[in-house]
Amino acid sequence: MAAHPPTNPVPPGRAAFRLLLTFLAVTAVALWPPGGWPWQSAPVTALLLLSCRYRLRVRPVLRRALVVWSFAALVAVGLLVQPDWPLRVANLFLKASLSLWALSLLVHVTPLADLIGGLRRLGVPPIWCGTIAFWGRYYAVVNGEWRRLQLARRARTLTRSRAVRFRSLANTLGLLFIRSYERAEKVHRAMQARGYRGFS
């Protein structure tokens, strides 16, 4: 997930520390009462310094921020009736942006596998860590399967009818569901053959 994953693996203790620090920082920023702008400059400065230090790429962060800002803009429309709307709107945008920035930095400096190690160290139940690890392992596989199915569908769907295209896309997604289900069963059998007896 990180744009430039570091080559060296992050030890679980350090990953757990980063996770905890990010969680505390995001919570503090998100729950800070509106106003108090001089205090808000502290996380901005810290994030700026860390982003320069770890060379966080701006474009992917901005791309994700656009999604959050569009939701914030919708909510901001509802705030325009309030007398102190500039403060409230600025507060919403600032908090959402700072939190997004902090999380982007976390996943930039810590690869998924190391983050899962950190989650385990923090005491997250093994069933959840295992599920997220499986997501990370099989997302690329399922996505690749989807691309192949799409290519085959496009090659065989010669009509321009919107209804036929919709039906064919839905059937392809249904086929992807069946293949994912069967893959999960196969993976489980392979794991059992190697001695897997479930997460405690």
């Binding site: 599920t131 069963e185 993976v187 489980h188």
Partner: peptide, 8 residues
């Protein structure tokens, strides 16, 4: 024990 692979 199929929970994790299936849900993942």
């Amino acid at each position: 024990d199929q929970t994790v692979p299936m849900v993942g």
